[in-house]
Simulated assay, not measured.
Amino acid sequence: MKLSRSLTLWATLMLSPVVFASSPTPNDMLKQKIQDTLGLEVSSITAAPIDGLFQVITNRGVLYVTPDGSKLVHGNIYDLNDAMNNLTELALAGPRLEMLKGFEDKMLVYKAKDEKHVVTVFTDITCGYCRKLHREMADYNKLGITVRYLAFPRQGVPSPNADEMEAVWCAKDPRKAMDDAKAGKAITAAKCDADIAGQYNLGGSFGINGTPAIILEDGSLIPGYQPANELFEVLERRGKH
């Protein structure tokens, strides 16, 4: 009997899956340190364009960190051998497009009748250049540029500014409310699932700190106002690459 029980126990152990506790990888430890020290959410860690650094994409943009996590660099890396191509901006292009997909149902869209290009603009209703861009919406649409708005209240969230933008997004006619708000008219308070905070945080993760901020079709960012004809030329040029 003892032999039989021993054989049964041995067979059970041999057939059972063996689970080993996995040790944290260097990337895991680096991610944890950045989250604990800076309070940032880390979405990816990859090799940086400069040897000896890691490129870390966070909810507040791109950082460069030494492998041991002791030193951090914040800024843009440019390629002198490629017409000063901004490699930091390039690193964010793909992730931006992916993250935008989750907010498409929150966008206020001014669609061009003969659509050739689509841009996403992070906007604020009190910003002077945002209002200028909005007054010229017909010019963008006439050139075939569809404009999709996301909210970026410059006072942050929560704030009276954010509440006003929620009122626009939650109005019975959001586009008319946007027209009125950009013209300086008062907007009736309204609440809904507009997720203004989510839109604002999304902009922050894109590296946006002012409005208007324009995301192009390739995921690149143009900070500030662009006249319709100049924006069209940029889009056409990018589309040919």
Rank of each mutant, 00 (worst) to 15 (best):
L87Y: 10
K101R: 13
H117W: 07
D68A: 10
V62Y: 02
K116H: 10
K111R: 13
Y64H: 11
T46S: 12
K106R: 12
E98W: 13
K111S: 11
D79H: 05
N76T: 12
G52R: 09
L63S: 05
A91G: 08
S43V: 08
V65Y: 02
K71C: 13
G94H: 15
V65E: 01
I50T: 12
V118C: 08
M99R: 08
K101V: 01
N85Y: 12
V73K: 14
D114R: 02
L97Y: 07
D105Q: 09
V109Q: 05
D79N: 15
G61Q: 04
E104Y: 07
A93S: 12
N59E: 04
F54G: 10
N86I: 02
A47F: 08
T58L: 03
E98H: 11
V118Y: 04
E41Q: 13
T58S: 10
L53K: 07
M107V: 04
F122T: 00
T120D: 00
A47Y: 14
G102C: 10
A83M: 15
H117C: 07
D79F: 04
N81S: 14
Y78F: 15
G75E: 10
K71Q: 15
T123N: 03
L72G: 05
D51P: 10
R96T: 01
T46P: 03
D51N: 13
G52D: 08
A91D: 04
R60H: 11
T123Y: 00
Y78N: 06
L63D: 01
H117A: 06
V73P: 15
G52A: 10
I50H: 12
T120A: 00
T120S: 00
T120N: 00
V121Y: 00
P95D: 00
V62A: 06
K113G: 12
K111N: 09
G102Y: 09
L90K: 15
E98Y: 09
D68G: 12
V121T: 01
T46G: 07
S70L: 15
T66V: 05
M107P: 03
Y110E: 03
N76L: 11
K111A: 11
F122K: 00
T58V: 04
K106G: 09
G102A: 14
T58G: 04
D105R: 07
D68C: 13
D105M: 06
K106N: 14
Y64M: 04
G52E: 07
F103D: 08
Q55A: 12
V119S: 01
E89N: 11
I45W: 00
Q55P: 09
V109G: 10
G52W: 04
R96D: 01
N86S: 08
H74R: 14
V62T: 09
T58Q: 04
K113R: 14
V118S: 05
N85G: 14
E41T: 13
G61P: 02
S44I: 03
E41Y: 11
M84E: 14
T120Y: 00
R60W: 12
L87K: 03
L72V: 13
V109K: 08
I50K: 08
N81G: 14
V119W: 02
A91H: 02
E89W: 06
L92Y: 02
Q55R: 07
M84C: 13
V121N: 00
R60G: 10
H117L: 07
A83L: 15
V56M: 01
Y78H: 11
V109T: 09
S70V: 09
D82W: 08
N59Y: 03
L80Y: 14
V42Q: 01
V121R: 00
A48M: 04
V56C: 02
N59H: 05
G61D: 06
N76W: 15
H117R: 06
N59D: 10
Q55Y: 05
